[in-house]
């Protein structure tokens, strides 16, 4: 949708022309593993489109490829507190929220979607390493290799 793309753009322009432009860029907490499913600048620019595309494929066609799955995003990028419990990704200073606060873009994901991995299966999920090729469509050509350690519970 054109409008969805316009919003961050407008927010960016506003950020540039306003005094807040001098504010420091947020420092994102690092995700797990070596690399994200796409180069960082591509993810910054297009993650909402990836998610929108994936959302329609998953909900309507039952296509459950993990590459642009929001569940996988959360699994990789969720942080833990000092007691080892998960911190919701939409909490202040957390992966999603820190940048969205900076850009003043409202998310409409976590009213419904889980902000933390399902506790029982979380460790198994995050242990899976996602390997992908440079295929632009990114739908057909990758495999998820479950890492056996940690019980290998179903990830859904």
């Amino acid at each position: 949708m054109g409008l969805d793309r316009l919003v961050p753009f407008v927010a960016l322009i506003l950020a540039l022309v306003s005094p807040a432009a001098s504010a420091d860029l947020p420092e994102l907490p690092r995700g797990k593993g070596d690399a994200c499913v796409a180069p960082t600048d591509e993810m910054r620019r297009d993650h909402m489109d990836f998610l929108l595309h994936q959302r329609d494929l998953t909900v309507h066609d039952g296509i459950r490829t993990p590459r642009f799955s929001l569940v996988e995003c959360v699994d990789c990028h969720v942080q833990r507190n000092s007691e080892g419990g998960f911190i919701p990704v939409d909490a202040p200073e957390q992966f999603c929220e820190i940048c969205h606060t900076y850009a003043s873009v409202k998310m409409d994901c976590f009213g419904c979607h889980a902000t933390m991995p399902d506790s029982a299966s979380a460790d198994a999920n995050t242990a899976a390493s996602v390997v992908h090729t440079d295929d632009v469509l990114g739908v057909m050509s990758y495999r998820v290799t479950p890492v056996p350690e940690g019980g290998g519970t179903d990830a859904d």
Binding site: V71, V74, G111, C112, A114
Partner: peptide
Amino acid sequence: EALSNQKSYSPRGKGT
């Protein structure tokens, strides 16, 4: 009402 602690595979939320 607003919900929290949804299952990752079963998104559900207020107003729908």
